[in-house]
Amino acid sequence: MSAKKDHLKHALIPEHTKLSDKEKEALMKKYNITLKELPKISINDPAISHLDPKEREIIKIVRKSPTAGKTIFYRGVINE
């Protein structure tokens, strides 16, 4: 299993983590948005397969950015 998933540590894949329910609430409140307005990520996306994602959860992505050094991006999980 581990050998098969080696490629998911690829240099181009930024760090993906799942938000807890509390963090999710706080995020929505901070930006005054609903889940629908976030960018999406598929539930079958290979980069989040290790997180066991469920629909309507939020994935936090920490990207390396050439302009800001580090940026945080959020994607809502969809099942399509």
Binding site: H7, H10, D45
Partner: peptide, 19 residues
Amino acid sequence: PERIISNDLYEMEKIFGVE
């Protein structure tokens, strides 16, 4: 496996994801 790069966008998406 951590550095292989293709210029085929769809292939990259299928294997490494949307990000």
